[in-house]
Design a protein around this nucleic acid. Structure first.
Length: 186
DNA sequence: CACCCGATTATCT
DNA sequence: GATAATCGGGTGT
């Protein structure tokens, strides 16, 4: 299992979003491993009105301005967490990639318990769902994902996805024209 | 299967 | 006081 280094994230946010498709998100809970293949992402950078960091740094979005390869986790709609990976080049002050969906790989039974026994297809196919399936909460904000620990991202041993589609992003009111959502069905 | 709506809270105006 | 990078359950076709 090869962990992705921070240099991977020190590039244009949109490029990182696209290339994160097919990587493996790993969550280690004590001696249990939960993992899944990332198959849907969205790019948000500070030059984009849809980005949380567009209007400057606040307490909530501070980690988007922090070191690349770390997590940005926020709470929304009163009941859901969403997870981003901080990624940007030097042309912007903040940026991150929203992980929207993973395909469960290891620890499926544990994910089902965390999710309340839903079918595998619906286990982690949404930003709020995957954080619940992996037991990710606000405490994971600023966690370093480039070191082996309880949460990190690794190269996949599976074949690379071949049909990545770029489409407009979901659930936003500004910047809707940018095709910065990436998805694959593997 | 399409559409509608409530939950529930941090953040900003 | 309004809004939000969502979800799941409900209703109606």
């Amino acid at each position: 299992m090869q962990i992705i280094q921070s240099s991977f994230y020190q590039r244009n946010t949109v490029v990182v979003a696209k290339e994160l498709i097919g990587k493996v998100l790993v969550r280690q809970i004590d001696d249990i491993t939960l993992s899944g293949i990332i198959n849907e992402t969205e790019a948000y950078s500070s030059d984009d009105p849809a980005c949380h960091a567009y209007n400057g740094k606040t307490k909530r979005n501070a980690s988007l301005f922090g070191p690349v390869g770390h997590a940005y986790v926020y709470f929304t709609y009163g009941c859901h967490f969403c997870m981003n990976v901080v990624a940007r080049d030097n042309s912007v002050t903040a940026g991150g990639v929203l992980i929207r969906s993973i395909i469960p790989l290891e620890g499926v039974e544990s994910m089902q318990k965390l999710r309340g026994n839903v079918y595998q297809k619906n286990l982690a196919n949404g930003p709020g769902k995957l954080t619940q399936a992996l037991a990710i909460n606000r405490d994971f904000d600023t966690v370093n994902l480039t070191k082996k620990g309880f949460l990190f991202i690794a190269e996949s041993s599976n074949r690379l996805p071949y049909n990545i589609k770029a489409t407009p992003r979901i659930g936003i009111s500004k910047g809707q024209e940018k095709p910065w959502r990436f998805a694959t069905s593997l």
